[in-house]
C-alpha cells in the first residue's frame, strides 16, 4: 500500500463530562505518531479539553447530545475540529474575549478560547445560533524530533 503523509481519524461521543478526559486522551494518543514533545501533547490536551467542555456546558447546556472530533495529520501539522450541534454562539468575537463568560454562576473563568489560542497555532470558530459550533484548530507538532515516516 502506498504511504501518504496524511492520516485522519474521527470520534463521536455523548456530551457527558467524563468524556472530556476521554476526548483529550484520544487526541493525544492519535498525535503520538508525530513524536510530539511532552509540552506539545499537553498543549493539545488543554485545547481539546477547552473545546469539549464548551460544547458540554454552553452548546448543549449539559443535555446529552453528540460531540464529534475530527483529527487530521498533514506532514507535521495536526488539525483538530470539534463539532457540536448545540445552541451556537451569537457573537464569536465577544465569546473569544478573555474573561468573558455567560455562565459566571458555574464558576466558568472565561479563559477557554484564550487557552485554545495560546496553546494552538491557529484557531477559527464557525458558529450560528441554533445550528451549532465548529472549532477548527491547527498546531505544528514534532518538529525537531524524528521525521514523519
Amino acid at each position: 500500500m502506498e504511504k501518504t503523509n496524511t492520516n485522519e481519524m474521527m470520534i463521536e461521543f455523548d456530551s457527558y463530562t467524563c468524556n472530556e478526559a476521554f476526548a483529550r486522551v484520544a487526541v493525544a494518543a492519535f498525535c503520538t505518531q508525530l513524536n510530539p514533545t511532552l509540552e506539545e501533547v499537553a498543549d493539545l490536551k488543554t485545547a481539546v479539553s477547552e473545546a469539549v467542555t464548551n460544547a458540554i456546558i454552553h452548546a448543549y447546556d449539559e443535555k446529552v447530545e453528540k460531540i464529534r472530533i475530527i483529527c487530521k495529520i498533514v506532514a507535521h501539522d495536526m488539525y483538530i475540529t470539534v463539532i457540536d450541534h448545540g445552541k451556537g454562539i451569537p457573537d464569536v468575537d465577544k465569546a473569544m474575549e478573555p474573561l468573558y463568560t455567560t455562565k459566571p454562576q458555574l464558576e466558568r473563568s472565561g479563559m477557554g478560547f484564550a487557552f485554545m489560542e495560546a496553546f494552538m497555532d491557529e484557531i477559527t470558530v464557525v458558529s450560528e445560533p441554533g445550528k451549532g459550533t465548529q472549532v477548527h484548530m491547527k498546531k505544528r507538532v514534532g518538529i525537531g524530533t524524528s521525521p514523519f515516516v
Partner: peptide
C-alpha cells in the same frame, strides 16, 4: 497535578 484547564482557573478564582 500534571493537567489543568480553564475549569481549574474558574475554581481557584471562585
Amino acid at each position: 497535578t500534571v493537567f489543568m484547564d480553564s475549569s481549574g482557573i474558574g475554581m481557584l478564582m471562585g
